[in-house]
Amino acid sequence: MVQKTCVVVVSGERERLQMAAMVASVAAVSGHEVLVFLSMNALPLFMKANQALEAPSEGPMGNLMVSRRVPEYRSLFEQAVSLGEARIFPCSMAMDVLSIARPDLVEYLEEPTGLTKFLSDAQDSQVWTF
């Protein structure tokens, strides 16, 4: 049976996004089925218009990651999709509150999904929250 890993990302802080992207990408390339749910302050960073926007650092590690060649969280999420079995879902509630439409978001995301659907998909899986 395929191991299922769910990653819930609500923070817009660089360190949390980075850790979430690492868990999602490494799980995806290790043969897990990976579901990522993007909501709250994490979601606007996945808008096409915000791709040059840097996520603010929570502390010194976040600043250091920029000056060193740490793979960017956006490319790790994209690799989770392209190299593994990851699917990334934007939260429909956050989209409503922020007035975001599907075409505003980067292409590698799935269709907007509500919590009810995500909770049912996340059943019997390992869930990581960032």
């Binding site: 690492m22 990408s25 490494v26 390339v29 060193r68 060649r69 740490v70 793979p71 790790l76 690799q79 190299l83």
Partner: peptide, 8 residues
Amino acid sequence: SFCPGPLM
């Protein structure tokens, strides 16, 4: 690069 860059 840093983890998980080389793996990817």
